[in-house]
Write a protein that binds this DNA or RNA. Structure first.
Lengths: 211, 211
DNA sequence: TGATTTCAATCAAACGATTGATTAAAATCC
DNA sequence: GGATTTTAATCAATCGTTTGATTGAAATCA
């Protein structure tokens, strides 16, 4: 598999694509805006990627490439329910901080959420590459922590709720900020969210493997 | 406040706007697509709404109008924590079913989520009209159920997580369907989600006002 | 080595198509 | 028949894409 990071004009166009596609959507972003932000000419898009749609796919590939280097290291499955619960807490913290504060990842997340929302053909690759393996891994952890069947519908739904609440703090960020009276979600605010969600997680897990 | 339901061509255009704006986004929807779906002429948009942007605002007004007739009846604040908890469960069930299965509401929800995502000027009205009062009401319930301060940051974050997990099952629906092996989220599937989220809710609330 | 050719890359300019908006005439309604 | 609504036709602007020219560095030749 090709894993080389694009360079030069290609990289600049992909960066512009991640930013503008994620911020305003694919259709609302013009090739001229892309070229201007990348500091190059409009024709470069067709030359390097075959067109605007090709740039979108290149952005998708870039997201996949950068993600698997960020979200790795949760492959080891703990032995005890307590260790599994601790690992879920660690994962929750990493997820919330990644979604809400990660400066470098802001464009990545924005682009991916937009891509999911537009329900395009890109969704297949996103799902198979990024979501399915992750979700399956968390299911294993969750099952270990609660003593349930990792392949059961119950566990899969619980994990979606678990991840979904974290994702909402990114999707509904402008709303959250307004309601919370926060100018922005920085590390301090993210920590408050993590603290609260961790309490919820512990309550849910505790009830599950109670006698 | 004007509360009359639009009729005729206006209603057809608003319905088309809710559907197409919600499905493909505002920028990706042309006035000709709108007119075709509404069974009228492009010029009708400018005539009735002053332009494409005016139709967007009219759609927003329609969402607000239809929402307050759907999500009403949670104004009475129960006396006991148990009653408040029960009301939260009822609200959760209504929310999940509304988000995932409501046939009539599919366009409404899609439009609103898209509007939030685009972070446009419409967000102010959405927030003040639909979200803030609702969120505040749920906070009151949550506080009553757990014995906390309804204005505390903790309660507000908990309520966002509570609502956010439900919303995710709508935003990430294509992903959820794929992972769950569901052809669609119908009443049966929605019930499974509700059952699971209700378990989570009970676990969280139980821990809160334990001795 | 020095001259020539090749090639990827970038640019300004222009293309046809489509966009949202506008106009005035035709149609419809009360 | 006067007011309201819908229509076809047209507008300038912008869209994504293509074109032909130009660049500079590597490759090839003499």
């Amino acid at each position: 598999m090709e894993n080389d990071a694009p360079q030069g004009t290609q990289a600049a166009l992909i960066a512009a694509g991640l930013h503008l596609f994620g911020q305003h959507g694919f259709a609302a972003t013009s090739t001229r805006d892309l070229a201007a932000r990348a500091g190059t000419n409009v024709a470069s898009i067709a030359y390097h990627f075959g067109g605007k749609e090709g740039l979108r796919r290149a952005c998708l590939r870039e997201v996949a490439r950068r993600m698997q280097s960020v979200l790795s290291g949760a492959d080891r499955v703990p032995d005890t329910p307590e260790a599994a619960a601790r690992q879920l807490e660690t994962m929750l913290r990493a997820l919330v901080f990644f979604l809400t504060t990660a400066r470098e990842a802001a464009d990545l997340v924005g682009f991916m959420l937009r891509e999911i929302g537009e329900d395009g053909p890109a969704l297949d690759e996103i799902y198979q590459t990024l979501i399915e393996p992750r979700h399956r891994a968390v299911c294993t952890l969750w099952a270990r922590a609660t003593g349930q069947d990792p392949d059961s519908e119950e566990v899969r739904i619980s994990v979606f709720a678990f991840i979904g609440q974290a994702i909402y703090f990114r999707i509904g960020r402008p709303i959250v900020e307004r309601r919370m009276g926060w100018a922005a979600i920085g590390p301090a605010e993210a920590q408050k969210i993590v603290d609260r969600l961790t309490q919820h997680l512990r309550a849910i897990l505790a009830e599950r493997h109670a006698p």
